[in-house]
Design a protein around this nucleic acid. Structure first.
Length: 490
RNA sequence: CGGGGUGUAGCGUAGCCCGGUUAUCGCGCCACGUUUGGGACGUGGAGGCCGCAGGUUCGAAUCCUGCCACCCCGACCA
């Protein structure tokens, strides 16, 4: 059993914070709102990056890198965009320090910048300023670029991975000749995200559209994927925006079409961030610690030796090393933990806390019988397996664990998605059960705002796979074209 | 930015109201020995600008003032 881990029932957010720290994923730094991502946490992020990067490239995108600093004036070019980010920007005003008379380090006031630089909260402006120079003809389109970067948003309140002042993400920025093509790109990337999150992270998502008030600053349409956490709160896991011609007009990005006529290009942007780590942790983990889906686990299998003396250790090691070699040849990520500084029991708990999907223990009894003990992290069950059968069994179990985690999460979500037909029922479900609430809404921002004020629930999305049955808004009783998905959100 | 709270060893803490020996305890750390199939035990040891600065006092972790940081609640969060 994990020592001192607060349970989810006791205090969910305390459980989350402790888990992040104890599983060695990240910790708070000396810098307000900024976290240190520790090696184990970063290894998981790298697994995510590698797969996403592969998917982006498979859909024709290329990576590039744009500056961290954006001149202030760039922001004023697209009005709604600056409105969305103005309140949370870090601003660079000086470029030099000096030693004061009392020996302290101070900002050199004579080194003031002509124009302040903004630490990017997102890169639309600098990228579109650059695209102007890259795009002249329809032959230059589509332009399909992604960048892996850090961004800064000066949030009032931060939480490890879920909302930090600085965070890591990827942002795709594409330019297209036609509106339809740009919309198709936004939809495609939403689907890529959904594919990744469901099939690699084993986290089920609802694909949908954001309402006008929840839309990205500067977008005409925001596609999103929404996931449900174990405490019944929703988490926006990724967004893909159709930007129309807003940025093309703001940054004067035109191309000559086949008829030689100048046209503004059509744009999209899309991103996912280290917040996905939060989604991964909160979806699968339990009171014993982290639970990782095999596809993203830095170590899929760990082998723990049990021995009393050198002779036994040598015998166990021989079996372990052979297993490791065979499993690695099959592409399984496996580690043999032969540290003599910790006891087996300590290691069992350690790997449980860190969410390693499969643990293999090999001791003197196993050597005698030609077996090993295998333990699953997701079900906490153990089985004895013939050494010769381990390789095949590992492959089966890794797949089973991946599927099981997804199925469990889907079941949880189904059990916590409620259809309601009145506002009273809505409030009751929200307070007593939480989760997604599917209800009719009259489509106005006023009603949406009223619900948010009165209940703290927001419209997570207008689901795309809904059956579009008309009805009456639960608040106003006005005509509603379809049900939308509400929840309290992170 | 408003309301509340907390800063004592790497971490978690006692002491603070009511000033007075060498600042308490647990975890962790180091050494040695016994241990090793679910977070071992014993013995010994190291580790402290008591958040920072000033003040009161013979004497301050303790009282006073200012500052800083963090946490919680609100506001904020495309």
């Amino acid at each position: 059993m994990a020592k001192n881990l607060t349970t989810r029932d006791e205090d969910y957010s305390k459980w989350y914070n402790e888990l992040v720290i104890k599983a060695d994923l990240a910790e708070n730094s000396g810098v307000r709102g900024c976290m240190v991502i520790k090696p184990y946490g970063f290894a998981i992020w790298e697994m995510m990056q590698a797969e996403l990067d592969r998917m982006f490239k498979e859909t024709g995108h290329q990576n590039a890198y744009f500056p961290l600093f954006i001149p202030k004036s760039y922001f004023s070019k697209e009005a709604s965009h600056v409105d969305g980010f103005a309140k949370e920007c870090a601003v660079v005003t000086h470029y030099r320090l000096k030693t004061a008379e009392d020996g302290s380090i101070v900002v050199d006031q004579t080194a003031k910048l002509e124009e302040e630089l903004i630490v990017r909260p997102t890169s639309e402006t600098i990228i579109w300023d650059t695209y102007r120079k890259w795009i002249q003809s329809y032959r230059d389109l589509p332009l399909l670029i992604n960048q892996w970067a850090n961004v800064v948003r000066w949030e009032m309140r931060t939480r490890l991975f879920l909302r930090t002042t600085e965070f890591l993400w990827q942002e795709g920025h594409t330019a297209h000749a036609t509106k339809d093509e740009a919309i198709a790109e936004s939809e495609q990337m939403m689907n890529v995200y959904a594919d990744f999150v469901e099939n690699h992270m084993a986290v089920p998502v609802v694909k949908g559209l954001k309402t006008e008030s929840e839309r990205f600053a500067g977008a005409l349409e925001t596609y999103c994927i929404e996931a449900l956490m174990q405490d019944g709160k929703a988490l926006q896991a990724g967004t893909s925006h159709f930007l129309g011609q807003n940025f093309a007009k703001a940054f004067d990005v035109k191309f000559a079409n086949k008829q030689g006529k100048q046209e503004y290009v059509w744009a999209t942007s899309w991103g996912v961030s280290t917040r996905l780590m939060g989604a991964l942790i909160m979806t699968h983990s339990d009171d014993n610690g982290l639970v990782l889906p095999p596809k993203l686990a830095p170590d899929q299998v760990v082998i723990v030796p049990i021995y009393r003396n050198d002779e036994q250790f040598d015998a166990v090691s021989e079996v372990a090393n052979n297993l490791m070699k065979d499993l690695r040849a099959k592409g399984v990520r496996v580690k043999f933990d032969k540290r003599d500084t910790h006891k087996p029991g300590w290691k069992f708990n350690e790997y449980e806390l860190k969410g390693v999907p499969l643990r293999i223990a090999i001791g003197p009894k196993d050597i005698e019988k030609g077996t090993v003990e295998m333990a699953r992290r997701d079900t906490l069950t153990k089985e004895i397996v013939e050494t010769t059968a381990v390789e095949a069994r590992v492959e089966v179990l890794l797949e089973e664990i991946q599927d099981n985690l997804f199925t469990k999460a889907v079941n949880y979500r189904s059990a916590h998605t409620t259809q309601v037909s009145s506002y009273d029922e809505f409030k009751k479900i929200l307070n007593e059960k939480g989760g997604f609430i599917s209800a009719h809404w009259d489509g106005t921002s006023a009603t949406e705002e009223q619900i948010k004020k009165e209940t703290k629930a927001t419209i997570r999305c207008i689901p795309l796979d809904t059956d579009n049955k008309a009805g009456r808004c639960i608040v106003t009783g006005n005509i509603s074209a379809r049900k939308v998905l509400f929840a309290k959100a992170y």
